[in-house]
């Protein structure tokens, strides 16, 4: 079943076409890589899918429902979550609060019941705390739960960001350069971690990554963007030997080999 369909998305900022005619039909359970040189428009694609930017042309369907021009929080509620290239945790809040924020969606009680501290509200409040603790345990961050998020080691911050995204119960997870700034050991753990959560939460994942070992290692299908255009699509093998891709990357392929 198709979970996400980006139907010929084009976005222009003034005279600049950041992404043009982007097409992606994503099957449930896929792990797709999105690669390309800096400024190719990869993050812009994420921003369109999550509703932060609205495409100039084209439509986005999530499980056959049109989500173009929906508000960001509604799209999140439908089941799309993301992480960021430059970590964007709530650095001054504690680790557990970061996750609790993302549990909000599933809370029904109103502002008024909160203001009066009604039992139904307190119950839900406890429930999200437990949920958040469970999630932290799964990503092995439970010992840090009362630490300030900004004080965690870099690799742990990346993990927390993923945990926070998971707390919104996504069906589609967008990971924006999760391995950026990680050492080889951390990167290896991250790859295992991504596969593990994909399996466990039945996720469909789109991954933006510059580390070719990661992309080639875990993605079955890869899309290559350059100057906003999709210049290649295929499995890792095909992508590595695609002359267009080699040209765009100027020798990255050689490094990988």
């Amino acid at each position: 079943m198709s979970i996400l369909k980006a139907d010929h998305l084009t976005i222009r900022f003034g005279g600049l076409t950041a992404v043009s005619d982007f097409y992606l039909d994503l099957e449930e359970g896929e792990l797709v890589g999105l690669i390309g040189p800096n400024g190719a428009g990869k993050t812009t694609v994420f921003n369109m899918i999550t509703g932060v930017y609205h495409p100039t042309q084209g439509e986005i369907y999530f499980r056959d429902q049109k989500i173009t021009r929906q508000s960001v929080d509604k799209i999140t509620a439908l089941g799309i979550a993301r992480t960021f290239q430059n970590i964007r945790l709530f650095a001054n809040l504690s680790v557990i609060e970061n996750v609790m924020i993302a549990c909000h969606l599933r809370i029904k009680s109103s502002v008024l019941s909160a203001a009066f501290g009604l039992p139904s509200y307190l119950q839900e409040e406890n429930y999200i705390r437990e949920e958040a603790e469970k999630l932290l345990k799964e990503v092995k961050l439970e010992n840090f739960k009362n630490y300030v998020a900004g004080g965690l080691p870099y690799g742990e911050q990346r993990k927390l960001e993923i945990a926070r995204a998971l707390a919104t119960h996504p069906k589609l997870l967008l990971l924006d350069e999760p391995a950026a700034g990680m050492n080889p050991q951390e990167t290896k753990e991250l790859m295992a971690f991504i596969l593990e959560i994909q399996e466990k939460y039945k996720l469909t994942i789109i991954l933006i990554e510059h580390d070719m070992k990661v992309v080639m290692g875990i993605c079955k299908r890869i899309l290559v963007l350059d100057y906003g255009k999709t210049i290649a699509e295929g499995n890792p093998e095909e992508i590595q030997h695609n002359p267009e891709v080699i040209k765009a990357y100027l020798g990255v392929e050689a490094n990988y080999a």
Binding site: V72, R82, H104, I128
Partner: peptide
């Protein structure tokens, strides 16, 4: 409370808060 948490999240980072479904 969660509304307070949402408030604090917004004051830290408006855009990310939205992406958390707030």
């Amino acid at each position: 409370t969660k509304n307070g948490l949402a408030m604090r999240a917004i004051s830290k980072d408006f855009d990310t808060a939205r992406l958390m479904g707030i």
